[in-house]
Design a protein around this nucleic acid. Structure first.
Length: 309
DNA sequence: AAGACGAAAGTGGTTGA
DNA sequence: TCAACAACTTTCGTCTT
């Protein structure tokens, strides 16, 4: 299925303007023409399994058939422990080879327990990832990245002492930024049990200890998603994009909430292109208040000499 | 009546001593 | 660790369409 889609993409031409460049709006599964904004394909549905398996055993274990496995029972009740007393069943001390063998077995057993606890953690975490990704419309690529980040965090023991949900939310947040489809901390916090504050902490930890380089969220990247949400015409979202580009050149955007900038740009573009949205609608879409939209928009209008406003 | 505007006070996060 | 600070929010009264 995947290859088919990719082949079609290669020689795709926009029926509206004949353009050949397309912008992927992964949050909605939409693809839009870069020059006129026409939405070409909507609703790519991911029909593949949300997990990956490399061996038959793994596949069998994860297929959703067969008796349910409870993740709430540690080791599914099958664990055995080897004591460190180094004595046999009748209490005699072990000697020589036996002793060494027992020591090795114990070591491996401990390792396997540690390993299985990671797997348990991961299976909970990946379920959380699925939930977050589908509720937030996160692309498959970003999802993979999030899962990769989480695994790294797990092996580096960063999850210890923090909630799985918070860490996973942080991983998703970072992954989205890396894929140029930023979500806001508030959006994550709405879907997660964790608070915005906790997620923020996790994000900082992840970036610091995994040495991730994460692009700063830019207002530009917010446009496609918001445009889709507000059903803007193509020309309007393009106009908004150029306004933001101008604003960046003039250095007005530094230190400002990208949501506010994007909102203001869209508001202005709406007026200029006769495709108006109310401040309230926009404010809701970009998660800032109307007041912020107003402030940014007045600032933009003044600094960019947009006299028609 | 809905939308836009702006003042004033409050909040959470960053910075620099 | 604390205070200062900028950006943003909340709230609310007023003006405009």
């Amino acid at each position: 299925m995947g290859s088919l889609v990719r082949e079609n993409e290669k020689d795709m031409v926009c029926p509206e303007c004949g353009g050949t460049n397309f912008q992927q709006d992964t949050s909605r599964g939409e693809k839009a023409c870069s020059s006129c904004g026409l939405v070409i394909t909507a609703h790519h549905i991911d029909q593949s399994a949300e997990w990956r398996a490399f061996t038959k055993e793994e596949k069998d274990a994860r297929a959703r058939t067969g008796a349910p496995m409870s993740l709430l029972i540690p080791d599914k009740g099958l664990s055995t422990t080897i004591s460190r007393s180094m004595r046999d069943a009748s209490g005699r001390a072990l000697k020589g080879n036996n002793r060494a063998a027992m020591y090795r077995m114990r070591k491996w057993q401990i390792r396997s327990i540690a390993h299985s606890s990671e797997i348990r953690n991961l299976s909970i975490a990946l379920r959380e990832l699925d939930r977050l990704a589908s509720n937030l419309g996160v692309s498959r690529d970003a999802k993979d990245t999030a899962s990769f980040i989480y695994r790294k965090a797990l092996t580096k023991r960063l999850v210890r002492g923090r909630s799985i949900e918070g860490m996973m939310s942080g991983a998703v947040y970072i992954a989205c930024r890396m894929h140029q489809t930023p979500r806001q901390l508030d959006e994550l916090a709405d879907e997660s049990i964790s608070t915005r504050r906790e997620i923020g902490k996790c994000v900082r930890q992840l970036i610091r200890y995994l040495n991730l380089k994460v692009p700063i969220p830019s207002a530009t990247n917010l446009i496609p998603r918001v445009a889709a949400e507000l059903k803007l015409e193509g020309k309007t979202s393009i106009r908004a994009g150029t306004i933001i580009a101008d604003a960046k050149k003039n250095g007005i955007t530094a230190g400002k909430d990208p949501g506010g900038i994007a909102g203001a740009a869209i508001y202005i573009a709406g007026i200029l292109e006769e495709d108006r949205r109310t401040q309230r609608e926009i404010a809701e879409a970009v998660n800032v208040t109307e007041v912020t939209i107003r402030n940014r928009y007045k600032e933009l209008a003044r600094r960019l000499n947009l006299s028609t406003l």
